[in-house]
């Protein structure tokens, strides 16, 4: 599988580590009223869809960047690759 890195071009998936659901970028506010429920959701609950999924990938054997990869988990087609720093909070 090739991941088309936004800065470096297509790179082999063996250079990357899969780091889970991209929702981890949006950490809940601990001061909010129902923060306990939100943190339970943030820490443990995943939708795990069969289809389009936003994922975090870390380019460990490369430039050490964090990417948000939109991937179809059924076909493994990669639809979009962005730097995590550019997507945070969106």
């Amino acid at each position: 599988m090739l991941i088309d890195h936004p800065l470096l071009g297509p790179r082999d998936a063996s250079e990357f580590i899969y780091m889970g659901d991209a929702k981890l970028l949006n950490r809940p506010n601990w001061k909010s009223q129902n923060s306990k429920t939100k943190f339970l959701d943030y820490g443990y609950l995943r939708k795990n869809p069969a289809g389009v999924h936003k994922e975090l990938w870390y380019h460990e054997q490369g430039d050490r960047s964090w990417l948000v990869v939109t991937r179809n988990t059924v076909t493994h087609e990669i639809l979009k690759v962005e730097l995590a720093r550019d997507t945070k909070g969106k």
Binding site: L8, R11, D12, S14, E15, Q61, G62, D63
Partner: peptide, 9 residues
């Protein structure tokens, strides 16, 4: 470029 060769960085 930084990459992986035979599992080594």
């Amino acid at each position: 470029k930084r990459t992986i060769m035979d599992h080594l960085n």
